[in-house]
Simulated assay, not measured.
Amino acid sequence: MEELGCPKVLANERLGHEDGSVSARYTHGTDTMRALLMDQLTEVWHKSLDDRLLLAPRSPAPILDRLLQQRAAERWHPVSRSHPDHTQMQRSQGRSP
Rank of each mutant, 00 (worst) to 15 (best):
R34N: 09
R66E: 13
V44D: 07
R34A: 07
P57G: 11
L54K: 05
K47Y: 12
T32W: 02
D50Q: 02
W45D: 08
A56Y: 02
A73N: 06
L41Y: 03
R75I: 09
W45Y: 09
S48C: 07
D39E: 12
Q69D: 02
P62T: 13
D65F: 10
S59G: 06
K47L: 15
Q69N: 07
R66T: 14
L67T: 05
V44A: 11
T42Y: 03
D39S: 10
L68D: 01
A35I: 03
R52S: 03
I63T: 04
R58K: 12
L41F: 03
D50G: 01
P60T: 12
T32H: 06
E74N: 09
L68T: 00
W76P: 00
R52Q: 02
L37C: 08
Q69M: 12
D65A: 09
R75L: 15
L53A: 00
D39Q: 13
Q70K: 08
A61I: 15
H46Q: 12
Q69H: 11
D51L: 03
P62G: 08
S48N: 11
H46W: 14
D39R: 12
K47E: 11
D31M: 06
D31V: 04
L67H: 08
A35T: 07
L54R: 04
R34F: 02
P60E: 10
P62D: 11
D31L: 05
W76V: 06
D51C: 00
A73E: 06
R52C: 02
W76E: 09
A61H: 11
L67I: 07
V44T: 08
L41I: 02
W76F: 15
Q40G: 01
L64D: 08
E43M: 14
L49F: 00
K47C: 02
A61N: 11
W76Y: 12
W76L: 13
L49S: 02
E74Q: 10
V44I: 13
D31A: 09
H46Y: 14
D39L: 10
R58P: 05
K47W: 14
T32N: 04
E74L: 15
L53D: 03
L68V: 03
A72E: 06
S59C: 14
R75C: 15
R52V: 02
I63D: 13
D50F: 01
L36H: 13
S48M: 13
L36S: 14
R75G: 15
V44C: 11
A73L: 13
L53C: 01
L53Y: 01
R71S: 07
M38A: 13
V44F: 08
T42M: 08
S48T: 13
S59Y: 03
P62N: 08
Q69C: 07
A72N: 04
L49P: 14
T42C: 09
M33I: 00
R58A: 15
L68I: 04
D31I: 04
